[in-house]
Design a protein around this nucleic acid. Structure first.
Length: 435
RNA sequence: GUGGGCAUAGCUCAGUUGGUUAGAGCACUGGAUUGUGGUUCCAGAUGUCGGGGGUUCGAAUCCCCUUGCCCACCCCA
């Protein structure tokens, strides 16, 4: 009996054409993380439920995949909480500050929407700095993420930045109660999507006082996202301690970020940015590509000074950012910025006929020794078929090794794109196929 | 989890007020071309019409149920 082949919703196979792009981008990510001095870490896919539960906020908690098993376990929801656990368990073996990167899958029981880059299983690329409250660390992860977005094809990405203390202070001065903060933040975060009127409407529906809403909206919409906006907010609310502290933090972070190489126009101060994850305490950031509004954020992160304290006696400050490689790939494909190729093979060595197969296999071995990615055609079929295979796979070069070539001690090399064919000795062949 | 839309060949889709053997383009296979791909020409294969039930002389078409997918919300990378 045949079993119907199918996939669990939100899961996907990544076929070679996409996997080749993915591996290349991941290699760039890894290289960049190392260039900035971060060390790799891996943690298990499965954690105890109580490690994960309650860290992400009420609504996100429902998105954790609990495993049907007696031990009370779940699939990791992000890489930050597992990092916090690792730090709490290995304090004596880790340096301070601890700079780690981690590239692994996470699982979220959301409604998958692939065209928007929403999956139930996806890879996060995290960099975090644990053990320092220095704002240079905030600036560093921010700068790294912007640098990486540029390398991966999105130099025009905009990173929005805000500060939890500024948000909290803003709620105070606008007359909201502390317990209302979450609801208000969730609504104003949608400003880009539903517009000013939409936000006002939703806030009014929740029963908030009209004058509070009015003051909040005026403030949020007041600036242009530049440093000047920071000054305005600062002078307007200088008697609120939280706002004063948050703004001063942000100013310093942005200053350091510029020293790290960040162009001012790629960062925008945005009072509407709140981020849902509960554990953030200080700076928060999130990046989008303006040309692709339907695709969600490409990166996101912030400072979480109290999370690790949940697992250990003393609190340990930390700041980090995650780069959503799946979203970036979705965005690159959507914007037509990458070309698919089906194989890493650069040269196909044809087999003229069965009796000459050894010659072709031997040539392939010599090409590999020179670092040329190549394959021999595995069946001694008509050359037409072998050329069709190369064409279908997008292999740029084909070598023919028949009786004539062997008689001359040369190889026929066809450049498939140009359609030109020449007879060459081995040295010239290598020169030609290595670009 | 809530709301809306869709489901016909590998893919994109036609399919009239219910009417006989369900079609096209692309892709695929073979050949024209036994030492050469991408163009052209010729030939060929392909379907539980998402699944189950109902109405009917007759259902891809109408009704009910179900499953899957897509979109929006929620939340986020």
């Amino acid at each position: 009996m045949k079993i119907e082949p199918r996939l669990y919703r939100g899961m996907r196979d990544i076929l070679p054409a996409d996997m080749l792009i993915r591996e290349e981008l991941l290699a760039d990510v890894r290289e960049t993380f190392r260039l900035w001095g971060f060390a790799p870490l891996a943690t298990p896919a499965i954690e105890f439920r109580d490690i994960l539960a309650g860290k992400y906020g009420e609504s996100a908690d429902r998105l954790i995949y609990n495993i049907e098993h007696k031990d009370g376990i779940a699939l990791r929801y992000d890489l930050t909480v597992p990092l916090a656990r690792v730090v709490a368990m290995n304090r004596n073996d880790l340096p301070t500050p601890f700079k780690r990167y981690q590239i692994q899958e996470v699982w979220r029981a959301e409604r998958a929407q692939p065209r928007q880059g929403r999956f139930r299983e996806f890879i996060q690329c995290d960099v975090d700095i644990v053990g320092t409250d220095s704002l240079i660390a905030d600036a560093e992860v921010l700068a790294l993420s912007i640098d990486l977005l540029g390398r991966l094809g999105f130099p025009g990405a905009i990173t929005r930045i805000n500060h939890r203390a500024v948000l909290r202070g803003l709620m105070e001065v606008c007359g909201f109660k502390p317990e209302e903060e979450m609801d208000v933040c969730r609504i104003i975060d949608k400003l880009d999507k539903i517009g000013e009127d939409g936000v006002r409407e939703e806030l009014a529906e929740c029963g908030f006082a009209a004058e509070n809403i009015d003051m909040l909206m005026k403030t949020i919409l007041s600036g242009d996202g530049t440093g000047a906006m920071l000054d305005e907010v600062e002078s307007k609310f200088h008697d609120n301690k939280r706002i004063a502290k948050g703004i001063s933090d942000l100013k310093r972070v942005l200053n350091f970020a510029e020293s790290f190489g960040v162009q001012p126009e790629s960062v925008r101060f945005d009072l509407a940015l709140s981020r849902g994850l509960d554990y953030y305490t200080g700076t928060i950031f999130e990046s989008v590509v303006p040309e692709l509004p339907h695709i969600g954020s490409l990166t996101g992160g912030g400072r979480y000074d109290e999370l690790i304290g949940l697992f250990s006696k003393s609190p340990i400050p930390a700041v980090g950012i995650t780069i959503g490689i799946d979203r970036i790939i979705t965005a690159l494909l959507d914007a037509g910025k990458v070309e698919h190729c089906k194989t890493p093979t650069r040269v196909l060595v044809t087999i003229f006929d069965e009796s000459l197969a050894e010659k072709s296999i031997d040539l392939a071995r010599k090409l590999r020794a020179e670092g040329v990615a190549c394959e021999v055609h595995l069946e001694p079929v008509k050359l037409k078929k072998q050329f069709e295979y190369a064409d279908a796979q997008g292999i740029p070069f084909v070598v023919i090794l028949g009786e004539d070539e062997i008689a001359h001690g040369l190889y026929s090399l066809k450049d498939m794109r140009a359609g030109e064919q020449v007879e060459l000795d081995f040295e010239s062949l290598i020169r030609k196929v290595v670009d």
